[in-house]
Design a binder for these strands. Sequence first.
DNA 1: CGCAGTTTTGATCCCCTTCAAGTTGGGTGG
DNA 2: CCACCCAACTTGAAGGGGATCAAAACTGCG
Lengths: 241, 241
Amino acid sequence: MLFEPVIRKLSAFERLSGGEVHAIQKLGRDLRVFHKYRDIITEGDNPDFVHVVLAGWAARYSVLPDGGRMITAFLIPGDFCDIHVTTPSAMDHSILAITDCKVAFVQKHAIEEVTRSTVALTRAFWRSTLVDEAILRQWLVCVGRRNAKAALAHLLCELHVRLQLVGLADNGDLHLPLTQTELADATGLTAVHVNRTLRALRQDGLIDEGPSIRLRDIAGLREAGDFNPQYLHLRTPNVTA
Amino acid sequence: MLFEPVIRKLSAFERLSGGEVHAIQKLGRDLRVFHKYRDIITEGDNPDFVHVVLAGWAARYSVLPDGGRMITAFLIPGDFCDIHVTTPSAMDHSILAITDCKVAFVQKHAIEEVTRSTVALTRAFWRSTLVDEAILRQWLVCVGRRNAKAALAHLLCELHVRLQLVGLADNGDLHLPLTQTELADATGLTAVHVNRTLRALRQDGLIDEGPSIRLRDIAGLREAGDFNPQYLHLRTPNVTA
DNA sequence: CGCAGTTTTGATCCCCTTCAAGTTGGGTGG
DNA sequence: CCACCCAACTTGAAGGGGATCAAAACTGCG
């Protein structure tokens, strides 16, 4: 059941048959562990495999000349690092393990075979890339046109839905293994300001902090972040009622 | 030769045979004109066609509750509005004609047929979506971690390369049909600050303004914007030497 | 126990925003 | 051919959201 998160995620996009589920499970020959803060893929690499996160968190990031860093995506179990299968090309950014990660290395032609044999999986893979792009656009909106409070609220809502999809969020209880610096690098803020903004969200009764972040008032958070889950293109419109 | 920009763009990704070029030209049954500031596609639409910009400029955008707007992409001749062929799903954002636009409406199955018959075109389409994503990530870096000057410089460099690809930029002479407000909405700034920043770039001798923007010092602009064209994944590493 | 990374808090600064007003220029109608 | 208008550009002054700098408190862990 290593590929369970992948199956859960893809099932959110397309109803999968037993055969299709089985086909996914058979992708899993090669499994590797990356330790915290190790690069899974480095800019300039031209990977031979498709990488799939099966456990742990990772992040796409770019580094600037002044030492600044921008995180452009969080990858959680079920997410693909590089599904651009048929196009051999050098990575234009790096991917970092934020926690210890289990990553499947899937042969490119295995993916191609699977998509050749089943339409539902092809659609699910496409949908997955479509959603990745939609998430990127939402991040752009957050960073470019929302204030810190709304941006963080939106990010928490996004992660809540995505974690729920793969069974990693019970009803608003999120284990975010992210430092405030990492949240800052993902929202274009500074760690100091993330700290103050989280406190503001706490004081508004929207979240509780502790070992894990708890979304105390999901509806309120969604309003504060102007969050509408439609862009995640799920079959079931809302994960949480 | 309506599809010339598409052919030029895809040729930048993959060497295309005469047959493949011909296949693209045959996509062009249905052609429509959109006037300036009309929506080409509106959020919530579930288009039956794949839309391709053949002439003019368009922009993806989202609108916020407070009336703010974020532009998440500029589309120029040769660009696809929605290449997510096999996945019927509602648009999560809108696309606007920034100038009068010629847009091809291509049947989804026509795209599917073409990609079934030729590997190079399949690869080129994939590469195209990969590049769209890379551009999105670069915008995120600009908005999140670069100052106004670098962000605008980077955007100008990106548009320069992309316009050159489709034959719309002679050696640094760009016709940007963009208002400063539109540049602002694309960079997460205000129109006022875009104005001042463009002046600063002018005073630095990096650009000239007039009826069209001229990149007076391309190398300098690329340095100012920390621009490295690698993320555009072109066969020919640099369009401009 | 001690260290290193993270969180928290305070004080100050600045890039960019906001508000406001003036200017320019292309388009339109008389 | 000029008067008018509106959209875009430009410039100035003032304010604020978030950055920066600095240091203290907390956490986990070897």
